[in-house]
Amino acid sequence: MRPSGALVGVAPFFVYTTVFLLIPTIVVVVGAFADGSGRPTLDNVAALGGANSSFLPALQHSVVLSLVTALAGAVIGAVLAYAVSTARPDGLLKRFITSLCGVLAQFGGVALAFAFMATFSIQGFLTVWLNSLGLDTGSSIWLYQWDKGLMLVYLYFQIPLMLIVFLPAVEGIKPQWREATETLGGTTWTYWTKVAGPILLPSFIGATLLLFTNAFSAYATAAALISQASPIVPLQIAGTFTSEVILGQENVGKAMALAMVVVVALVMWVYAALDKRASRWLVR
């Protein structure tokens, strides 16, 4: 028997994951297969795929939105992380950028949505200023569309997030690896494709996955920006709980949440398969 004291230390962790992860998951899974009075049913799940259901388009939007902002954010963020890693280690610029990104990565939500409206909307200062210069910026409707404005707004926190999660991996690259490559006859191209690239790839994929789930589950930013329709799944779920037009939709919402869990599980599965190769040489 292990001494009981050893478990005391991890107890808060288990309590936390039980309350905020395990119980909600059970509620979602059970609720997705139950009707209003608690009897088992497949109606909720079936309703998702119904002919008039707006869920499937929303799921598609969510996946595309998350994928695009994750990939774009990952590529841009990785390049920025590399640039930052070449700055002096204790220099002001580097500390400033990492602190700034730490803030910006968490800057989603209503404040961010408002900042974009105040800048780009029909009455936004940029629009007004450009108009005063005689430049017609057209309508600002694009800002409220999921595949335009929302993508841009999401990138605003995705890129800084990538920078802070990917920077440690970039900084783990040893200068000797490049020098060894060069002395062995390799070029810069060889170094990136055969040495640095493969070494960074597992961290890059892991970070991209984090960005995907970050965008997939984001709610407040979209909710503040988009008030007509519900083009993405988190807004649809909220709708089932708050709609005053159709009542008793809570469990359909839970079925939608379950669908999100399945998507994330699929992504995790793909990641685990890719990661298996790297785990032979990675020291964690």
């Binding site: 690896w177 060894a180 006859g185």
Partner: peptide, 19 residues
Amino acid sequence: PTSKRDMGMVFQAYSLFPH
């Protein structure tokens, strides 16, 4: 350039490609 000099180099430490 280094890549054309044909030098074998051993560094202080951590120079093996980890992957």
